[in-house]
Design a protein around this nucleic acid. Structure first.
Lengths: 204, 204
DNA sequence: TTGTGTTTGCGCTCACATTCACAAACCCGC
DNA sequence: GCGGGTTTGTGAATGTGAGCGCAAACACAA
C-alpha cells in the first residue's frame, strides 16, 4: 500500500490486535483469518485488514495472517518489542492498584519506579517496588524511563506533569480529571472515570 | 435546530461541559460565552455551540450562556439532576480506590452498594460502605440501582455482567480488559488501562 | 425607537473513519 | 502445471464528525 497517514483510531486498535495475537501465540495457532479474528474482537473483517495493511502486507492470501510473525510486527510497530519502562506517580489507593496490576506486563511494560510526596509512604513497598520521594523524579532520564502514569489528585497533576516533562518523559497516561498543559511533542492520554460514568445515565 | 441525530462524541463531551458549568456556578458567574468556555476546556467555540444546540437554544445571543439554567439543562439531559445510584462489583485494590474516590459525587453519583465474592472481605467497610456477597446482586433492582461499575478480574467480568443484567442493571462501566457480551439495550463503557498505555510508546 | 456591538445558531464544506466490493495472490489437490 | 476455493489488499463509496462563516437575535445606550 502506498503511503497514507495512519488514522488515530487505527493506532488505538493496535493494542487490541496485539492482545489477540498474543493469545493466539500461546494457543500455538499457525494462521488466523481476518474473519475469525473479527469474531474474537467483535470488529468487521475489512476493518482489521485495512488497519494492518497500513503497516505493510503481513497476511498470506488464501490463508490468513501468520500468528507468530504478525504478533512480532505489531509489537515492533507499537515499540513493545522492547521492555518499556514507566514511572508511576502517586501511591494512593489508585496508584497502589495500578502498581499491583499485572495486566501491563502482557504488553511488556515495567513499572520501574513509584513516586509519592507523602513522607509516610516513602520507603514503603507496593507491587514489589519501593516508593521514592517525588523530588527524585529527575532521575528517570538516567534510568531509561520514558513513560509515566499519573495517579495523583487533580490539583497536583499539572505540577507533576511539568516535573516529569523536565525529567525527559515523552508520554503520559493521566488518570486525573483535568487538562494537562504540555508541549506538543509530549503525548498525553487522559482517562477521567467520573466523566465516563457521567455519560451512562443518558442512555437509560 | 431541527431534529438531528445527536453524535456519540457530543454525548461524551457533555459531562465535561457539566463539570465546567458546575465550577462556574460555584464561582457565581452569571453568563459564559462559548469563547471563554472554550478556553477553559481547550476546545473550539463552534464545537461547544454546536454540541449545546443539539439539545436546544440555551444561549442568549450577544451575551452567552446563562450559567445557572444551562447547568441545570445539561444535568437533566444527562439525567444527573437526580442522584444516580451505582453498584460497585469487586472490592479489590481497584474497587477500593473507586469506592473511596470522591470525584463521582460532583456528578451526583452515589455508590450505593459494593459487592465481592471473597468471604474474607464480606462485611468489611470501604469508602463508608459495607461489602456484600455477590450472591446479593439480585437486590439492586429493589434498591433503585440501575448502574454498575465492574472492577473484577477479566475472567469474572462476563459472569458478573450477566448477573447484573439479570438483576435489572441498565448501564455498566467496566474496567476489565475484555469484551462483554450483552443485550443491545444495555449500554457498556469499557476502559482498558493497559490498552491505553499500549498506544503510548508508538508516539515516542 | 433606533443603532451598535456582541454572541449565538446553523447551513455548508472539509476531513476523517468505516464499509464495501473486487481483483490479485496464494495453497492444495489432481 | 493448472484450476478451484479461499483470503488478503485496496480503491471507491458511504457515513460521521469537526470547523468556518455569516445571518439572526439580543442587550444596551442614546
Amino acid at each position: 500500500m502506498k503511503y497514507r497517514k495512519i488514522p488515530e483510531e487505527t493506532i488505538r486498535r493496535m493494542p487490541r490486535y496485539l492482545r489477540a495475537f498474543s493469545t493466539l501465540q500461546s494457543e500455538n495457532q499457525g494462521y488466523i483469518s481476518s474473519q475469525l479474528l473479527a469474531e474474537r474482537l467483535h470488529l468487521n473483517p475489512p476493518q482489521i485488514r485495512k488497519d494492518l495493511s497500513y503497516f505493510g502486507a503481513f497476511g498470506t492470501r488464501g490463508i490468513g495472517y501468520p500468528v507468530q510473525s504478525t504478533a512480532e510486527q505489531i509489537r515492533s510497530i507499537l515499540k513493545l518489542n522492547i521492555t518499556q519502562r514507566a514511572a508511576l506517580v502517586g501511591a494512593g489507593r489508585l496508584g497502589t492498584a495500578i502498581a499491583s496490576y499485572h495486566g501491563f506486563s502482557l504488553f511488556g511494560f515495567d513499572i520501574a519506579a513509584v513516586f509519592d510526596n507523602d513522607r509516610q509512604k516513602i520507603g514503603r513497598r507496593i507491587g514489589g517496588r519501593t516508593i521514592e520521594d517525588v523530588s527524585r523524579i529527575g532521575s528517570v532520564g538516567s534510568r531509561g524511563i520514558q513513560l509515566a502514569i499519573l495517579a495523583v489528585p487533580a490539583e497536583a497533576a499539572q505540577t507533576c506533569a511539568d516535573q516529569l516533562i523536565k525529567a525527559g518523559i515523552k508520554g503520559i497516561l493521566s488518570l486525573s480529571p483535568c487538562y494537562l498543559e504540555t508541549p506538543k511533542r509530549i503525548k498525553v492520554i487522559s482517562i477521567d472515570l467520573a466523566m465516563e460514568l457521567g455519560t451512562l445515565p443518558y442512555y437509560l
